[in-house]
Computed example of a mutant assay.
Amino acid sequence: MFAAHFDRFGPPEVLGVGPFPEPHAGPGEVRVRVRAAGVSPVDLSLRAGTSPSAGRLALPHVPGVDAAGVVDEVGPEVTGAAVGDEVFGAVDVARLGGASAQFAVLRFWAAKPAAMPWEEAGAAGTSIETATRALDLLDAREGTTLLIDGAAGGVGSVAVQLAVARGLRVIGTGRPESGEFIARLGAVPVTYGEGLPARVRALGAGRVERALDLAGAGGLRELVGITGSAASVVTIADFTGPELGVRLSLGDLGGQPHGRHGLAVAAALFEQGRFRLPLQKVFPLAEAAQAHAFAAHEPRRGKVALTVSAPPGDHREQAPGAPV
């Protein structure tokens, strides 16, 4: 098959696209012929070697944790999936990648709505899982006001929509230029950064009962002050959270409850016209290095995706025009 991969840590330029051994579905997994894959922050930090998990990688490594495609191999112990199904989801977290390729193995997945663009489906998996997991932890009931710090990013833009669908009133922080984007998602926009409590009060939204930190920008103390309790705040990005009594939620994509349930909910909302995966930019797989560079330097406003098109003739050779 062809795949994006790197054999050393470094800048985006270490990524090439060329032949790579095919993966195969294990117990509880399906393999898909990938139509689109996402580019996530974890992919960037692993490639750069700055992630604490980078030492676990066996090089060369194929990045990518999210993918959508057509099932072509079903592993043992799998029910409810068959060859030919169109699905979207994510890899097993232990693999730390593998989705930016012609074939990828998914650990959790759901049926892709027929009308959902492949690019949206391919970039959605971990954002939906993360947002669902965090919202479940917050246990915010209908009518609750939730503040999402980092509402314009890949996870934030999903979390806003899922929270609104649960009947929550949402306030979302972001850069000033992201205000209109955040409002379109369904949240009341407010500029992030120092002085946030005063800006939130100025909105006149009343009591804020819950807060979700997706930015990891050191604002947890302010979020605790806004909600009045560390127990009312969850972070996915600030590892100092437990020191303040704030719950830190880390992904476990091998654990299916949040992943599969969240994907199914998002798919149903899409079909109701109540959910879209905002895409900031889409690149072909042959431009994986450019996609990583863009995702690293542009302000986040939705997700970055890669499209994977099969070459003519032998589909297990490299993509046309792809650097080796």
Rank of each mutant, 00 (worst) to 15 (best):
E86H: 15
F108G: 13
V158F: 03
A152C: 02
L135Y: 00
A124E: 01
G150W: 07
V170Q: 03
D43K: 08
T145D: 05
L46N: 07
P113W: 08
V83D: 10
P117V: 06
A82Y: 03
E129A: 12
R107A: 15
D85A: 11
G26D: 06
A36T: 05
G98Y: 02
L135M: 00
V91T: 13
G49D: 12
A58V: 15
F103Q: 05
V74W: 07
W118M: 08
V39K: 12
R141A: 14
G80D: 08
A99F: 05
A99H: 05
L106M: 07
L135P: 00
T79C: 07
S100R: 00
E119V: 13
G80V: 09
P27E: 15
S53P: 00
V78I: 12
V87R: 07
E73D: 14
S127T: 14
G55D: 13
V87H: 08
G167D: 03
A152H: 04
L44K: 12
F88C: 04
R166K: 10
L44R: 15
A67P: 12
M116Y: 03
L46H: 10
V71K: 09
A159P: 01
A140G: 13
V65F: 08
G154A: 13
P60A: 06
G167Y: 04
I148R: 03
V62R: 09
A48T: 07
T50Y: 08
T144F: 03
A114L: 14
V42R: 10
S40D: 11
G150Q: 10
V74Q: 10
G97W: 07
L168H: 01
E77N: 13
T50E: 13
V158M: 02
E142A: 14
A90C: 12
V93I: 11
V71G: 11
G122N: 06
R95D: 14
V105Y: 07
A121W: 06
A134W: 01
P113I: 11
R33W: 03
K112V: 12
A159V: 06
P63H: 11
R31L: 12
D92W: 02
V160G: 01
A54N: 14
L46P: 09
G26P: 01
P52V: 13
E142T: 10
E86P: 12
A25I: 06
A67M: 10
G69E: 12
W109I: 05
W118R: 05
V160R: 01
F108R: 13
P76K: 08
R141Q: 13
T126P: 00
R133S: 14
P113G: 08
G28N: 11
G38Q: 02
R35A: 15
G84P: 05
L57Q: 15
A110S: 15
A101W: 06
A124F: 04
P117T: 07
A48M: 07
G28I: 04
G38N: 04
G75M: 07
G75P: 07
A152T: 04
G64N: 12
G153D: 09
V155I: 12
A94M: 09
V158S: 02
A123D: 01
V30I: 15
D149K: 00
E120K: 02
G84T: 10
R35H: 14
A159H: 04
P113A: 08
R133D: 12
A115K: 11
G84R: 09
A165K: 02
T50A: 15
A159W: 04
